[in-house]
Structures are given as structure tokens and as C-alpha cells.
Amino acid sequence: MYPDELALHDDKSAVSQRGALERAGSRVDLTFEELFERYSSMVFSLVYQILGDREEALDVSQDVFFTIYRKIGSFRGESSIKTWIYRIAVHRAANRCRWWSRLRRRGTVSLEEHLSRNSEGDIYRSLRSDAQSPEDALLIQEEHREVERMLLQLPLQQRVAVIMKDIEGLSYEEIAEAMQISLGTVKSRIARGREVLKRNFREAMS
């Protein structure tokens, strides 16, 4: 599926990364490789939940890690590296989301339309092992899609806050730092987001 040239040029890229890694190492004590190893699924998952599209998430995740690679030298350690990475990821994903909604306002296309056109059946979520049979697995997958669709209906800021709290399991303080908003705003966004979801779930049930 992916062409050969994307297969790694290990020696060269290792050399080119070392400079940044050494700079990063002084404050972060992790090489870029290690950072990627540790946080790639966190970034990808968060971005995917925010945007609801796999290809978009891949694209934005690349941007996020490229930004990390470039800016790690200026990371001052005033927040944890985790929230710093979350901040970059949230910022990038939100920008992409706004880009889509700008297009929608211009009457060209909406993210939802784009998704329904491009990523039908494109969910690679690893199912939990509590699926007993293929039928169970299918049901769980259906349930996940339903929840994802509901999530995408939330306003962007509420969606991000709810995802970080309920899926990523971050603390209020971490979310405030990652989204660069006050603790009070975090609380109200989460509460309002959950409220909307609760209502929508109920409507879907009845």
C-alpha cells in the first residue's frame, strides 16, 4: 500500500535527527525516537477522536510530530512533556477542524460529508478482548461508531475537553494546560459536553 521510498533511510535520518535529539535530551532526557514510541498512539488517538477521520488524523499526526521535532529545543519544561505534546496536538487538530468548518460555511463541503465519502468502514479500532463472538464484535463496533458520531456533533471545544477527560483520562489541570484555558472553563466545557451527549444518547434510545 505504501511505496518503497517511504521505507526508511535509516542511516541518514538517524544522523539528521541526532542534532535535535541531543538538544532535546538536555531537557527532556528522551530521544525523538523514544518520544515517538511513547506518545504516538496518544497523539494519533486524540487527533482521530477530534477529527473522526483516519486519513486526516494521520496527516495531522505527522504535522504534530514534525512540530515536536522542530520545537523540542525550545521546550522549557514549564509543563510536563506530555501536556506539551497534548497542547500541540489539540492546537493542530482544532486548526484542521476549523479549516473544514470554514469550507462548510462557504458552502463547499462539510467534514461530515467528507467523512461519509472517504472513510466508510475505515475504523481500525482494536476491539477489546471482551468480544466473545464475531456477532459481539460487530455489535461493539456498531456501538463505537454511534458514540463517535455523537461526539462529532459536539462543538469543537467541548468535544476536545470531553475526549481528553473521558477517553484520555486526563486531569482537569492537565486539560487546562493543554487547551490553555482556565480550570473553570474546563469544568464547564466538560459538563456541557457530557450534558449534550447524555441528551443525545437518550434521544437515540427512544
Binding site: 477489546r128 461493539i140 451527549l197
Partner: peptide, 8 residues
Amino acid sequence: LQALHRVA
């Protein structure tokens, strides 16, 4: 929401 857990 929690049941969604991380996408790999």
C-alpha cells in the same frame, strides 16, 4: 466514551 479507548 471510555469504551472507545485509544485507537492504535
